[in-house]
Design a protein around this nucleic acid. Structure first.
Lengths: 241, 241
DNA sequence: CCTACCGATCGGTAGG
DNA sequence: CCTACCGATCGGTAGG
């Protein structure tokens, strides 16, 4: 499986552009004292390489899960050796952590700011719609969430904290929009875990059978359900997102 | 982790009771012509052994997922060799299939009858409550569901079909209870995938943080949400299950 | 970031 | 030809 949303350019192409072939020794500046300019360029190349490794790790995790993902497969996809990979990420677990952190940065448009104001509810609907356009990332994180409930999984703590944080953020969002009681009669505290469950659960149904499940539409239906107070008629239209 | 809900008796105990020690050769009936009675007892012992292997497989899958589960670990837990295990289940995948089928039998009290009438909605609430008492099984199947979205996973087809079947059954249940439009305004077809998502999604939150998430209460809140028509007051009590 | 490796363990099969 | 296993080991691959 390929994830074009994850790879704007093929790694083989990029290697060709930089004039670097797999198997070639690094540029022959050995023994030459490095200038500041060279150091900066080297650091930038390292950053780029790490980002491409994380992308490749996401792809391999999507295909085989974390336990099934070999460092060799990730390295091959990037076009480096396994030991080259271990230069940037000293252990498999370190690579996983970097991969988990990368998603948070994509989702929030940067490292999550401390004390950031809670999202509005329609921002979650937008996120679900966005996710429907990047099945590779959804697949990787759904596989990781599933694995994370097994014993001593390195992503367990991440998903536990994340779920709690999203529940809290959602409860605050619901409280801001509806107060202490939603039109449906539920409290924000009761509703938040249901919203998280719907988001996670719909992803599995959608990944397994995209034809059968319209994930964004189903999520919007759930949001409608939350706001429905029984007085807006029997046949509500698609309503505001 | 131990699953006392999965193992009413310890396997080591059972071995002692039957007077069979691991490593002992089979009973010395070699060279003696088998009677029909001996054949029947032998077959019964085979059935029991297969059931215990499936239980052990569920435990190991709960701990390590399917890809991480080794046949050796399953065999060790049963107290037989890996080759003894492969006598009963010729491949790892055959063992997985047997494990998946076993859950359906437990959940429905036997192999699912053809054309069985749809469950009532409160039967699903009971199932969620029952599941809260057997975290091991929930953990195994949550891990499998997560893995199943990865490439060429042997349980993918099972989970795809199962989700579709449960959606259909739930839609029929909702149609029988509410007709073509629920009090909330949603249709049975819109609601069914949300119910499946809530059941699956709540399991992950509950497994990761049982203190933070009351799975049965959350599911009951969702069922209330479905039946709520905006006219039952602002503070509905826990309501009928 | 390479070649050259390690201790161990994988799913599955051999003959008896 | 069946069942219920055994001790030993196959060719490959895992993370590091």
């Amino acid at each position: 499986m390929r994830f074009r949303y994850l790879r704007p350019e093929g790694s083989a192409r990029l290697v060709a552009v930089t004039g670097k072939r797999p198997g070639a020794r690094h540029t022959p500046d050995t023994g030459v004292r490095r200038t500041a300019r060279q150091g900066a360029a080297r650091a930038a190349r390292g950053e780029d390489r790490r980002a491409r490794i994380v992308q490749a790790a996401l792809e391999v995790i999507a295909e085989r899960g974390y336990r099934g993902a070999s460092l060799a497969a990730v390295a091959e996809r990037v076009g480096i050796t396994q030991q080259g990979l271990l230069h940037h990420f000293p252990t498999k677990e370190a690579l996983l952590i970097a991969t988990l952190e990368a998603r948070d940065e994509w989702d929030t448009g940067g490292p999550r700011a401390r004390g950031a104001q809670p999202w509005r509810l329609d921002l979650y609907a937008s996120l679900v719609e966005y996710n429907a356009m990047r099945p590779g990332i959804v697949q990787a994180f759904s596989a990781l969430l599933g694995e994370s409930v097994t014993a001593r999984h390195p992503a367990r703590d991440y998903f536990t904290r994340r779920a709690a944080a999203v529940r809290e953020s959602l409860a605050a969002t619901l409280r801001a929009e509806f107060g202490e009681r939603l039109p449906s009669g539920l409290t924000p505290q009761e509703t938040a875990p249901l919203l998280v469950a719907v988001m996670d659960g719909l992803q599995y149904q959608w990944l397994l059978d995209p034809e059968a499940v319209d994930m964004p539409a189903a999520f919007r239906a759930f949001v409608r359900l939350l706001g429905h107070d029984g007085t807006t008629g029997d046949h509500p239209a698609d309503g505001p997102t």
